[in-house]
Structure formats: structure tokens, C-alpha cells
């Protein structure tokens, strides 16, 4: 408990708004304020704080002035019509977009008070702390065991028995241990789609990320697999902060505590899930939720 409080204290830290200039970028970039941002009342402190985030594919801007605070140890869902920039937003948190030339993010994403978009950030360490789950399960071409051990082998040098223990723990935490204990050496590709997706979650969890990004993690999974993953996400809150992109409003309602509605690259509304669902403050949100578009 005291550890928790300590780390919360660390998370709160100095208010970045105070200590950082509002416009820290050398480019001629004007942040148009924080409209559309709701700092959830009484919520836990933010794990990540997105400010004035713009994103460009080449010359084409697809995110405009995104402001968002991702509460710690909660599930935050991002919803919105196709092409509104949900994936793009998510992929800025771990700077994975940098794998491709010509993509650029502007603004800031504070993770525990440190701007991950700033130059000089160690992206290897960032990605160790920020896990990512994709729409299709991305099991690596190796055994079940080696998949889960992948990150541990990269980031921790463990003895064989310790490694085995960690792998077992990770598989247990996604409810997969009993299903795969007899085929740890089987190819990961031999598991079912839902199992593979949970394996990916286990692989991500094994290196104890602080933030877990999920981009439509169940849209390629059958209903039973989906409900298992949803249960899993609910249980994850104890260990990590989750940001999940989903097209499934019911799913967002079931798993998330907070919800952000994106439209045409902007954060239109952000708040506690029940509030956004039942008392949206924007017409656009209401229209979307009632199925009038999207």
C-alpha cells in the first residue's frame, strides 16, 4: 500500500503545466487550448497526459490538437468512426510510427511526467514500458514458451528456472497456463486465434509494462475468445493502465472506465464511460452513440 502511495506521489509529481511552457516546440505551433478535454473529477492521477498532439503522414495532418489524460490503473477506451485517427493516436504513445519514414508527431505525451516525444528519449526503454496489442494476434514464429520469454530475454537476464517461473506467471495471468502447459514447445501458431491473442497479452505483460495499448484486440477473435479477453482486460487494471481502441460500443461499455470519442482527428469528448454514454456533452457524440453515423 505504501508502495502504491509512493508511486502515486511520484506520478503526480510537479504539474507539467506549471513547469513547462505551453508551447515547448520549436516549430511555429500554436496549441489551441484544451477544449474537449475533461479532467475526470476524483479520478486517479493520469498515467499519460497528451497535450496538443498533432500527427502527420507526410504533409497530411490527421490528428489535430489531441488532449487527453489517461488515468492510471484504469481502462480508457477510444471510440469513433473508421479513419478518425484512433490507431494513429494510439501508435504515438510508443513511437512505433517512427518505423516508417515521413510520419511525424507534434505536441507532447507525458508518461509519468516525461515527454515521450521529446528527442533523446530512449525508445527501447519506452517500448519496454508501453506494451502494444494488435488487431491480428502477432505471435512470433517460435514456440509458445519462447514467445512469452521473448521480452524477458531482451530486457532481463534471468536464470533458466527464473525465466520459466516468469513465463508460467505471465501465462497464468492471462488464463492460458492450463491450456498450454503441455505444449509450451509447440509453435505459437498452433494455438487458436483467441489463445494467440491472449499469448500476445502474456508476452506483453511478462516484461511488466506500465501502459498497455490495444488496437481493436478482439475484432479478429470469435465471441468466446472475445469475452475471455474482455474479462482479462478487466482484471488487468490492477497491474497496468490500459488504452483500448474499439469499434464495439458494447465492449467499450463493458471494459472501460473512461472513454474518448474521436472524430476527424479530434478528441470530441472525454470522460467517465457512463457519463459519455448516458449524458454526452457533445451532439456529435450523441449522434455517434445512437448510431446515426460511423
Amino acid at each position: 500500500m505504501s508502495l502504491m502511495r509512493q508511486s502515486f506521489g511520484r506520478l503526480r509529481g510537479p504539474d507539467p503545466d506549471r513547469v513547462r511552457p505551453l508551447n515547448p516546440n520549436p516549430d511555429d505551433h500554436v496549441c489551441r487550448g484544451i477544449q474537449g478535454t475533461v479532467r475526470p473529477d476524483l479520478g486517479p492521477p493520469p498515467k499519460a497526459r497528451v497535450r496538443c498532439l498533432d500527427f502527420f503522414y507526410g504533409n497530411r495532418q490527421v490528428l489535430f490538437d489531441n488532449n487527453l489524460e489517461v488515468p492510471s490503473n484504469r481502462v480508457t477506451a477510444i471510440i469513433g468512426p473508421s479513419g478518425c485517427g484512433k490507431s494513429t493516436h494510439l501508435r504515438a504513445y510508443n513511437r512505433i510510427f517512427e518505423l516508417y519514414p515521413g510520419r511525424r508527431a507534434r505536441g507532447e505525451i507525458m508518461l509519468d511526467g516525461v515527454d515521450v516525444l521529446a528527442p533523446g528519449v530512449d525508445v527501447i526503454d519506452l517500448r519496454r514500458r508501453v506494451g502494444m496489442i494488435f488487431q491480428q494476434p502477432t505471435t512470433f514464429p517460435m514456440s509458445v514458451f519462447d514467445n512469452v520469454a521473448f521480452g524477458l530475454r531482451l530486457h532481463a537476464s534471468l536464470r533458466a528456472d527464473a525465466l520459466r517461473f516468469e513465463v508460467e506467471q505471465a501465462l497464468g495471468s492471462v488464463g492460458l497456463w492450463d491450456e498450454v502447459r503441455d505444449r509450451l514447445n509447440a509453435p505459437a501458431a498452433s494455438l487458436s486465434g483467441g489463445q494467440q491473442q491472449r499469448l500476445c497479452v502474456a508476452r506483453a505483460l511478462a516484461i511488466r509494462p506500465e501502459l498497455l495499448l490495444m488496437d481493436e484486440p478482439t475484432s479478429a477473435i470469435d465471441p468466446i475468445g472475445t469475452s475471455r479477453i474482455e474479462d482479462l482486460i478487466l482484471g488487468l487494471k490492477r497491474r497496468v493502465t490500459v488504452v483500448i481502441v474499439t469499434h464495439n460500443l458494447q465492449q467499450a461499455a463493458r471494459v472501460s472506465d473512461f472513454m474518448a470519442f474521436f472524430y476527424e482527428g479530434r478528441v470530441v469528448e472525454f470522460g467517465p464511460t457512463s457519463q459519455v454514454f448516458h449524458r454526452p456533452s457533445e451532439h456529435l457524440t450523441e449522434d455517434y452513440l445512437s448510431g446515426r453515423f460511423g
Binding site: G131, M132, F134
Partner: peptide
């Protein structure tokens, strides 16, 4: 597949590790 590559980088791998552990096998 790009997903696989991103996923490997997303685990905090270096280019060498992605090449050697993922590309080489895949």
C-alpha cells in the same frame, strides 16, 4: 508482415534483435 515487425519493435527490441529473432525465422 508489418504487424509482426511492429510487434517485435514494440517489445523494445533493437533492429538487430528484430532482424535476428523475427525476420530470420519468419
Amino acid at each position: 508482415p508489418p504487424d509482426l515487425r511492429e510487434s517485435a519493435y514494440g517489445m523494445g527490441s533493437t533492429s538487430w534483435e528484430v532482424t535476428w529473432r523475427i525476420h530470420r525465422r519468419y
